[in-house]
Computed example of a mutant assay.
Amino acid sequence: MSKANITRAQLIEQLNLWGENHINAEQLQDWMVTHYDPDEVDIGRGEPEWVVEAMNIVMNEYEIAKTEKFRQENYQLAIDFIQADESKFNQTRHLFLQQGFRD
């Protein structure tokens, strides 16, 4: 039996739904909690290593952060991080982690 897989497109779709006010922060977090289980689900199967790492970081952050800390106006930073090429990985990770959430 093969493991379920979360694709980059599925994750970006959820982020866009939230960013465009189709779902709220709690619903986004619920999706992350329901789907993010690296022991049970493959994350980004077939994607380059840095994309898989970016997806894991994004899903983990939205799973564990308090929803009132989410900065919806900066949701695009998460998408940019997931879509970045390897040369922009560190830069986009920093922007997402520093500006994607309130302190």
Rank of each mutant, 00 (worst) to 15 (best):
I12D: 12
I12E: 00
E13Q: 04
Q14S: 12
Q14V: 12
N16C: 11
L17T: 08
L17A: 06
G19L: 07
E20M: 03
E20N: 14
N21T: 14
H22F: 13
A25Q: 15
A25M: 14
E26W: 03
E26K: 00
E26P: 05
Q27G: 01
L28T: 14
L28A: 02
Q29C: 11
D30C: 10
M32Y: 07
M32C: 12
V33N: 13
T34I: 05
T34P: 07
Y36S: 02
Y36I: 14
D37G: 08
D37N: 12
D39T: 14
D39E: 11
V41S: 11
D42H: 03
D42E: 15
I43G: 08
R45N: 12
R45L: 15
R45G: 03
R45C: 04
P48F: 09
P48M: 08
E49A: 01
W50S: 11
V51N: 10
V52N: 03
V52R: 03
E53F: 03
E53Y: 08
A54C: 08
M55S: 04
N56E: 15
N56W: 05
I57A: 01
I57C: 12
V58E: 10
M59W: 10
M59L: 09
E61K: 00
Y62H: 02
E63L: 05
I64G: 00
A65M: 07
A65C: 13
T67I: 02
T67G: 05
T67E: 15
E68A: 01
K69F: 08
F70G: 00
R71L: 06
Q72M: 14
E73Q: 08
E73H: 07
N74A: 06
N74R: 06
N74F: 13
Y75T: 09
Y75H: 12
L77R: 09
L77W: 13
L77H: 01
A78T: 05
D80H: 13
D80E: 08
F81I: 11
I82H: 02
Q83N: 13
Q83R: 02
A84H: 11
E86Y: 07
N90S: 02
R93K: 11
R93H: 02
H94M: 04
F96K: 00
F96H: 04
Q98S: 07
Q99A: 00
G100H: 12
F101A: 00
